[in-house]
Design a protein around this nucleic acid. Structure first.
Length: 612
DNA sequence: TTAGGGTTAG
């Protein structure tokens, strides 16, 4: 099924290849025209000293060393160059993303007695925010008032963005309301867009849409960024139909033209849901609208193919992208490397990494995390460790994902003590474990039958976000089940209610399994009914777990009823359930008449499985 | 000078 869908998508995609080639011809002609235009513009610009001085600053300064040398030279001049010159230099350094350096230069400019302005301040504040030092940004806002510089909307926007960058959403909302209500400054479209981005980041699409409506009321016209931010968030939350609704509203009702980013969000959302045909349609629509796919568009497709193990198709996409003059970047190759890792083709993965250097690309943390993950999954912890050291030697800083992956690997090969050491090292590096890290540790401890240690760690995690996470709870309940501590599992399950946490299909299935193992199929049945009533319908796994519970306790009437229900709802059996049922029939405990029903519930792949 | 998209871990 998957294969045919992918092939169809590829087929449609390749069909567009003709279009791409035609367009690339047009693109070539367009580029020559643009070049001519640019040449004339440059001539005109050189007549205007303002523009030419801006150009010369970025032309003279090609790297950080150039910038620092120029700064030294500027500080020696008497009289000192104007604040405009210093600000231009700060801007160049900031564009290179040397934020710490930019802040230091700003301080030196102030120390020289140069009267900084609004523009200089906004650059310095933005740098503090990018460095996760938004509080320092607010301190600079304070110094604006002391220096009698009236902060403008750009400064407030940078600060609001800083709060959101640091996940300080509550403070961001307060700050935003203060700006709007106390008339500190009039929020502009950028202010709204930043606030909308923050709401989306925290999964609050509803409020984000409400803010969009407020903008319309306040006569602050939403633009393509406003809509695309929400469309992207809806796509990420798999609410693709709502995303399309908003997209249509933007284009047909509001007359706001979509751009390549709007289309990329939709294509990515569709690919993640495996809706390949629709993704191809959107791609075609883009072409019709004369919006060329960019590196991100192609990367979305490469990634989607690699995730399905269709590396050859992904390579085709890369070839098309090169034909269209787009240069594959590290993200492209990381997807490819991840695809090889997924198929266990580690030699090809390594070879792709080696080829990066020839392309002038360097492996990054993502590249190594993929490799580490693959080695850990193959239980080759030594190779994983080797990679871990290799990445540090290359000056790459392992992140929370790197450590979480390594921890999982160590637990899988039952090296809890080493895992503990690595966890301490992670702390020492100043990295803060997230809910995934804790999930891995709790699962690792449980699998190594260290349930008590897992529970005490869980209790130590406090009452915050970490232990109010349904996935973490489910891991712990499952851990208690694996350790045979059914009463502990039950108590943990009851705690969910107190914390207002909604169990998901995994949680219910684990708990049903607990009841079955504890020899209480009636309790399992009650929970099975309850989950459906709570709006969480059972899946295949839930059915099979309950079925096995009934079989174990010889509740054959329930077995038959459940099989009928599965058939009615289009569910299927897994391998272990099928073999248990067949055993039951062979031993005469189950009626032979049920064979026909069982036959209908066996998926095709299993019929072809020689092990059965 | 401020805003939106693509890669990793349960």
């Amino acid at each position: 099924m998957m294969i045919s869908r992918t092939n169809l998508a590829l087929h449609t995609f390749i069909k567009f290849r003709g279009n791409f080639i035609t367009n690339s011809f047009l693109l070539h002609r367009f580029s020559s025209f643009q070049l001519g235009l640019q040449f004339r513009c440059t001539q005109i610009a050189s007549l205007h000293s303002n523009v030419s001085s801006n150009r010369s600053m970025s032309e003279k300064v090609r790297n950080l060393d150039d910038a620092l040398n120029l700064f030294d030279e500027m500080t020696q001049r008497r009289p000192l160059p104007s604040v405009v010159k210093f600000t231009q230099l700060l801007n160049v350094v900031t564009k290179m993303k040397h934020f710490t350096c930019s802040v230091n230069l700003f301080k030196q400019v102030c120390a020289l007695g140069v009267a900084v302005n609004n523009y200089t301040m906004s650059i310095a504040i933005n740098c503090c925010c990018r460095l996760h030092r938004t509080n320092d940004g607010f301190a600079l806002l304070g110094s604006c008032f002391r220096r009698a510089i009236a902060p403008n909307v750009v400064i407030f926007n940078a600060l609001l963005d800083g709060l959101i960058f640091e996940d300080r959403i509550v403070e961001a909302e307060k700050f935003f309301k203060k700006l709007s209500n106390q008339k500190v400054c009039e929020p502009n479209v950028v202010t709204y867009n930043i606030m909308i981005k923050g709401l989306c980041k925290f999964g609050n699409n509803v409020t984000a849409v409400a803010l969009l409506r407020l903008m319309e009321q306040k006569d602050c016209k939403p633009n393509v960024v406003t809509y695309t931010t929400i469309i992207d968030s809806l796509c990420k939350d798999k609410m693709i139909d709502d995303a399309f609704k908003l997209f249509k509203e933007m284009v047909f009702e509001k007359g706001v033209l979509p751009n390549v980013i709007s289309y990329n969000s939709l294509i990515c959302g569709l690919c993640k849901l495996g809706r390949w045909e629709e993704a191809s349609k959107v791609l075609k629509e883009m072409e019709v609208e004369n919006i060329s796919p960019d590196v991100c568009t192609f990367n979305v497709l490469v990634n989607a193919f690699c995730k399905e193990g269709k590396i050859e198709e992904a390579e085709d996409v890369i070839n098309i992208m090169v034909e269209r003059g787009r240069v594959p970047n590290i993200v492209t190759y990381n997807s490819l490397i991840d695809g090889y890792c997924l198929r266990g083709e580690m030699i090809k993965a390594r070879a792709t990494i080696d080829s990066l250097r020839l392309r002038g690309l360097n492996p990054d943390v993502f590249t190594y995390n993929s490799l580490l993950n693959a080695y850990c999954k193959n239980l080759d912890i030594e190779k994983a460790m080797q990679m871990f050291h290799e990445m540090t030697e290359k000056g790459l800083k392992p992140n929370v994902v790197t450590y979480s992956t390594m921890l999982q690997g160590l637990f899988r090969v039952r090296c809890s003590a080493d895992a503990r050491k690595l966890f301490d090292e992670m702390h020492a590096q100043g990295l803060v474990p997230d809910e995934y890290t804790y999930g891995i540790i709790l699962q690792g401890l449980c699998n190594n039958l260290q349930l008590e240690e897992a529970i005490s760690l869980f209790r130590l995690m406090g009452n915050g976000k970490l232990n109010s996470n349904i996935v973490v709870y489910t891991i712990l309940i499952d851990g208690a089940r694996k350790c045979g501590k059914y009463d502990i599992a039950r108590n943990l399950f009851h705690e969910l209610n107190d914390k207002g946490l909604q169990p998901n299909v995994h949680t219910y299935t684990v708990m049903i399994s607990v009841f079955c193992l504890d020899g209480k199929p009636q309790d399992a049945k009650h929970l099975f009914v309850r989950m459906e009533e709570s709006g969480c319908p059972p899946n295949n796994v839930t059915y099979c777990v309950l079925l096995q519970g009934y079989l174990k306790k010889k509740h054959y009437d329930d077995v038959e009823m459940l099989l009928q229900e599965m058939h009615g709802r289009g569910h299927s059996l897994d391998a272990s359930s099928v073999s248990l049922l067949i055993d039951g029939i062979a031993s005469g405990s189950l009626d032979r008449r049920m064979l026909k029903l069982i036959g209908k519930l066996v998926p095709k792949e299993l019929l072809e499985d020689p092990s059965l």
